[in-house]
Amino acid sequence: MSQHTPDWLLERIALGELPPEELAAARARLAEEPGGLERLAKLESDDGATLAKLPPAQVAAEVARRRRVVEAARPVQSPRRWLPALALGVPVVAGLAALMISSQRELPEEPRQQQAVLLETTRTKGLEPRLLIHRQRRGEPEPLADSVQARPGDVLQLSYVSAGKRYGAVLSIDGRGAVTLHSPDVSTGSLELKGGTVSLASAYELDDAPSFERFFFVTSEALFDVNALLESARALAQDSEAARREPLPLPASLSQTSVTLEKAP
Rank of each mutant, 00 (worst) to 15 (best):
S2R: 11
L10H: 02
L10P: 02
R12M: 10
L15H: 06
E17N: 02
P19D: 14
P19K: 07
E32A: 09
P34S: 03
G36D: 05
R39C: 06
K42D: 12
K42P: 00
L43H: 05
L43W: 01
D46E: 13
G48M: 12
T50H: 09
L51Y: 02
A52E: 12
P55L: 09
Q58I: 08
E62N: 09
R67W: 03
A72R: 04
A73N: 06
A73T: 06
R81C: 03
P84G: 06
A85L: 10
L86P: 00
L86T: 05
L88E: 07
G89T: 08
P91C: 07
P91Y: 10
I101V: 11
Q104I: 09
P108S: 08
P111Q: 12
Q113M: 14
Q113N: 10
Q114W: 00
T122F: 04
R123M: 10
T124L: 13
K125A: 15
G139V: 04
P141E: 04
P143I: 06
A145V: 01
D146H: 15
P152N: 07
D154N: 12
V155N: 12
V155S: 13
L158K: 03
S159K: 01
V161Q: 14
Y167F: 10
V170C: 15
L171Y: 01
R176L: 15
A178E: 13
T180S: 11
T180R: 13
H182L: 14
H182T: 03
S187F: 08
S187R: 15
T188W: 06
T188C: 00
L193Q: 02
G195L: 01
T197E: 02
S202C: 14
S202N: 15
S202Y: 13
L206W: 08
L206N: 08
D208E: 09
D208A: 09
S211N: 08
F217Q: 06
S220T: 06
E221G: 07
A228Q: 13
E231N: 08
A235W: 04
A237R: 00
S240Q: 15
E241C: 05
L254G: 02
S255N: 06
Q256Y: 01
E262W: 13
E262C: 11
A264Q: 09
